[in-house]
Amino acid sequence: MTFVRPSVGVALCTYNGARYLQAQLDSILAQSEPVDEVVIGDDGSSDQTMALLQVFSSRAGAMGIRVEVVQHARNLGYILNFADALQRCRSDILFLCDQDDVWYVDRVATYLQRFQADPGLLLLHSDARLVDGDGVALGGHLLEVLGVHPAEVELERSGRAIDSILLRNFVTGATCALRRSLLAEALPIAPCWSHDEWLAVVASLRDGLDMLARPTIDYRQHGNNQIGASRRGFMQRLRQLDLLDQQRRQRTAERLLGLDALLQQHGVALAPLGFPGLSALAWRMAWSRVQLYRRPDVSARWIAHDAPRLLARLLNVCLAGAGWIGVRAAAAGARAGWRMPR
């Protein structure tokens, strides 16, 4: 049987990123397994970004790489910009790419190997090494700083990705690659969701989400990231809870309603029949998280760090429309999770 290599595309979004962009562009061209196309959506840059992209287009074209640069007349924002760039790509495997990171030389080759080995894999992400604005290592990895427990990763990799994603997202777009076929189900992005979160949720419903436990990029932290990674103390995390701000509560309600609609569309039942709609989300969050808390490898310290997030998310579900039924569902889910055998 003749082996056909999947074509590889890159969806890169830029906005006034000239300071760091060149290093990222160089790392794309330096891949041990070359890419076939790069689609770049620029959100109205006023610095030297477009000049850098013009030079890059010539370099990449000379290497046989198709390059499309779209300069939007108005600022779309990074979510719509990525969605537009993804739709313009023609390749089989699509890499999401931020303007300020640096890819490891074997990134494309490593991802391609995983996609070729698993035809059901729809979206693959990885860890990342954190570096400062000058590219100097900060001494930590992305999942470590986010406080992601190996048990959460295990949930994702064991076919229960929805249980890890319901409570929080640790799929970072800059580390993601996906099959183009996922776009037919995942676009348009639901209101109030980021592109990486939504793509991961849709992939998880098809048991098509997985991750590489090692870093494949240097993830630059420079203070102007759209979404960065940093260690936050308890009071900082408390101030950022959606419960404390009316606009953020409304945004969370829209997110949850969009997720509920998606689950119904896919016919996914998260809870016993007595808990429909949003109350099913509350049941499942409590059920899966209490099971995780009971694991012998999950420390009391990590539970103390994570439990406030669980309570906040459950309250958000209740305020979004589940009401007192959601409270009863959460209690029932917690009891069921506690009674599950280890």
Rank of each mutant, 00 (worst) to 15 (best):
N169H: 02
N169Y: 01
N169G: 05
N169L: 03
F170C: 01
V171P: 00
T172G: 04
G173A: 14
G173P: 09
G173F: 03
A174L: 12
A174E: 09
T175F: 02
C176F: 12
C176M: 15
C176S: 15
C176H: 07
C176T: 15
A177Y: 08
L178A: 09
L178S: 05
L178H: 11
L178R: 10
R179L: 06
R180W: 07
S181G: 15
S181W: 07
L182I: 15
L183R: 12
L183D: 05
A184M: 09
E185C: 07
E185K: 10
E185I: 01
A186Y: 00
L187E: 14
L187S: 02
L187F: 02
L187C: 06
L187Q: 10
L187A: 11
P188L: 04
P188F: 03
P188E: 09
I189M: 05
I189T: 14
A190P: 01
A190D: 11
A190V: 04
A190E: 14
P191A: 13
P191H: 14
P191S: 15
P191T: 15
P191L: 12
C192D: 11
C192E: 15
W193F: 13
W193C: 04
S194Q: 11
H195C: 13
D196G: 13
E197K: 00
W198R: 04
W198A: 04
W198K: 04
W198H: 08
W198Q: 07
W198G: 01
W198D: 00
L199W: 03
L199N: 01
L199F: 01
A200K: 08
A200D: 10
A200Y: 11
